[in-house]
Design a protein around this nucleic acid. Structure first.
Lengths: 240, 240
DNA sequence: CGCTCACTTGAGTGCGATCAAGCCCAGTGG
DNA sequence: CCACTGGGCTTGATCGCACTCAAGTGAGCG
């Protein structure tokens, strides 16, 4: 809240003060390199629920890092059906799927009130030439994105509905843990419909599975509030 | 065949003579830049069916470009089930999913006798610093890989078995067209089992669908030989 | 010749989709 | 203040696509 409020008034990024600093920029940057990098980052932008950070077809300019809130990215297929390709939580980077193209090929939407940092890609490219660590960092980010996508492919291709839901919950839990939030109690930023869309399931199936998990005392759900009661059992479910 | 035979004897890459040159390296390289790039590429390596180019767990060193033949990459999940994450045809690059990690996190296997070029990633990284076009090229490659993966996610999540098979066939056809081969008559380099694994279907389903397509006069299949008879109808199927 | 392996085809089953109804709660207006 | 409304979510009943199980074919090969 404090961060978000400040950012609304101060458009320049102040990475040094940012709580996510160690998560989203390589630690190995020297002090003057760090300043150079910060100078190209556009200050925090604020979006409320359902607002687009960018829309498929817009000229590609920047990639983004989530500062607070949560973002989903979605592709539109030929017949207009949407596929959610990712949920992005604070410190996570999105927009990289469009780097190879003149226009964004997916759409990024705020799931709740969110703040993001904007990194103009052209500036980043020239910066990379002088700061090897930085080039390496962005290769890493893209490689990790490929990995995430391929894990999702495996999930969709080989796993049952229960396994998919359990995996998503544990993934969000682990990512919360990484940023020092509770891994057992948190709020799901997305709707049941979003979860279903992402996992290739219908809303009804997602709802039924959450109810079933609750009946089995694996977790408690109340609307979007979630508490995981039995990590081991959930983990066991994901492993088929 | 000629290329492959030559490469077996000559370990240094000779990109200038390579028929795929315009497809796998950026055209905008100056002559001396081109020479520098070629100098770090390891000469063509040959693999026969089922041989591993690299195996998950091997120290990550290089990314690869297919020169001839065909390669599949696969991830192993917790319980040992394999998921094929991609088929790579000549001029296509694989291995990028492992850039962020000290070891390969997937396995690359030759589907048939194949030749590949090896690009040591550490050398590539330093080269990038002096050749902006090259950095851009590899960002593009990775971004395109993310896109391919996300298209597959959509396919698995939202499309029926028939739609998935039709999409794969048209994808291979289009990629053949791109490298000046016939888009209507070609040999499928992978088995029915591979197709099913990739598309999240069983062998039986793949086989049934190919038979059905043939009965509908959309294509002819004889073992791995494929002839597409009705592009429009296949295209219509992929669009749901 | 007999073995294996990739593929095909058929019959029956089950998981998740579809269709349908109802609940809960926030927002809106009288 | 309450009545109404709409959207997100839950729950139940039924359906159908793709999986499973099973059998058979044919090519390649020792």
């Amino acid at each position: 809240m404090l961060i978000k409020a400040r950012c609304l008034h101060n458009a320049t990024a102040n990475c040094s003060d940012c709580l996510l600093r160690t998560l989203c920029l390589p630690v190995a940057l020297g002090p003057e390199e760090f300043e150079t990098v910060v100078s190209v980052i556009e200050g925090s932008l604020s979006f409320h629920r359902d607002q687009h950070i960018y829309t498929a077809g817009d000229p590609f300019t920047s990639i983004y890092v989530v500062k607070s809130g949560a973002i989903k990215t979605l592709m539109l297929s030929d017949q207009g059906t949407e596929q959610i390709t990712g949920f992005y939580l604070p410190a996570e980077t999105f927009g990289m799927a469009s780097i190879a193209f003149p226009r964004y090929n997916n759409t990024a939407v705020a799931l709740e009130t969110s703040a993001v940092c904007e990194i103009p890609f052209a500036k980043l490219e020239t910066l990379n030439l002088n700061i090897p660590t930085l080039q390496r960092h962005f290769f890493d980010l893209m490689s990790r994105e490929i990995n995430r996508d391929q894990q999702l492919i495996t999930l969709l291709s080989k796993h049952s509905a229960e396994e998919r839901v359990a995996s998503l919950l544990l993934s969000i839990s682990a990512r919360n843990h990484q940023r020092k939030l509770s891994s057992s109690r948190f709020r799901l930023p997305m709707s049941r419909a979003d979860i279903g869309n992402y996992l290739g399931l219908t809303v009804e199936t997602v709802s039924r599975i959450l109810s079933r998990f609750q009946k089995q005392r694996l977790l408690n759900v109340d609307k979007k509030e979630l508490e995981i009661l039995n990590f081991d059992a959930l983990k066991a479910i994901t492993c088929g």
